[in-house]
Computed example of a mutant assay.
Amino acid sequence: MKEQSYENHTRYQPLQHFVWLPLSFLLLIETVVYAVIEFINYGFSLHLLLLVGVVILAIIPGMLARIYAITLQDRLIQNEEQLRYFMLAGKGLDNRLTKEQMIALRFASDTEFVELVNRTIEENLSPEDIKKSIKIWRPDHHRV
Rank of each mutant, 00 (worst) to 15 (best):
H17E: 12
I40C: 11
L97R: 06
H9Y: 15
E112H: 07
V52P: 01
G53N: 14
V55R: 04
V55A: 11
F113R: 00
E81P: 03
I77D: 02
V117E: 02
L51T: 12
Q16H: 14
H142W: 08
F25V: 14
V54P: 05
T120G: 08
A89T: 02
Q13N: 15
I37A: 12
W20S: 10
V144C: 01
L72W: 05
I37K: 10
V52E: 03
L83Q: 08
A69L: 12
S24Y: 08
L116G: 06
E122C: 04
N41D: 15
H141A: 05
I56M: 13
K2H: 10
I67W: 06
D140L: 01
I103W: 01
N95F: 07
I59P: 01
K99C: 06
Q78H: 06
T98M: 08
T98I: 05
R143H: 00
L83I: 09
H142L: 10
S5L: 11
E123T: 10
P22D: 06
S126F: 04
Q73T: 08
N8C: 10
H17V: 10
I59H: 01
L64K: 13
G90R: 07
A69H: 07
F39P: 03
Y34T: 10
I136V: 11
V52L: 11
P139D: 00
K132C: 05
A35P: 04
L125N: 04
R66K: 14
I59V: 12
G43K: 15
V32S: 04
H17N: 14
D74W: 00
